[in-house]
Simulated scan of single mutants.
Amino acid sequence: MKAVDLSSWSGVVELRSPDGSELWYSRACGEMTSDGYAIADIPPSAFADAVWASRRCGQWKVTVTSPDGGTKRTLGWGYYALSD
């Protein structure tokens, strides 16, 4: 499989409810690489609010958008579980 150059694209990571219907957190990816990585650091402080005690698991998704905004793709998705 050949790596795709994402260095000029933009990316967003989302954390959603278990059924995916509610968006709980969204953050731009801090780095898009020439070898196909979208890197998003989520700081621990993002989960400091008491509401996260009831949001311990759900779905995550990373989407990327082309430089001209004309193409949007899902780069990856899955499930997350927060632990202490």
Rank of each mutant, 00 (worst) to 15 (best):
K2D: 04
A3I: 01
D5K: 09
S7M: 03
S7K: 15
W9G: 02
W9N: 04
S10E: 12
V13I: 15
V13W: 06
E14Q: 15
L15C: 08
L15M: 11
L15Y: 12
R16W: 05
R16Y: 06
S17Y: 00
S17P: 01
P18A: 06
P18S: 02
D19V: 05
D19F: 02
S21F: 13
E22G: 00
L23F: 07
L23E: 10
L23C: 13
W24S: 10
R27K: 10
C29A: 11
E31M: 03
M32I: 02
D35E: 13
G36T: 04
Y37P: 00
I39G: 03
A40F: 02
D41H: 10
P44K: 02
A46H: 03
F47W: 08
F47D: 01
A48M: 05
A48F: 02
D49A: 12
A50N: 03
V51D: 14
A53C: 02
A53S: 08
S54H: 07
S54Q: 13
R55N: 09
Q59V: 10
Q59Y: 07
V62K: 04
V62R: 04
V64S: 08
S66A: 13
S66Y: 07
P67T: 06
D68E: 11
D68A: 09
G69V: 10
K72I: 08
K72T: 14
T74S: 10
T74Q: 11
G76V: 14
G76S: 12
W77E: 15
G78S: 12
Y80Q: 05
L82T: 03
S83R: 10
S83Y: 07
D84C: 05
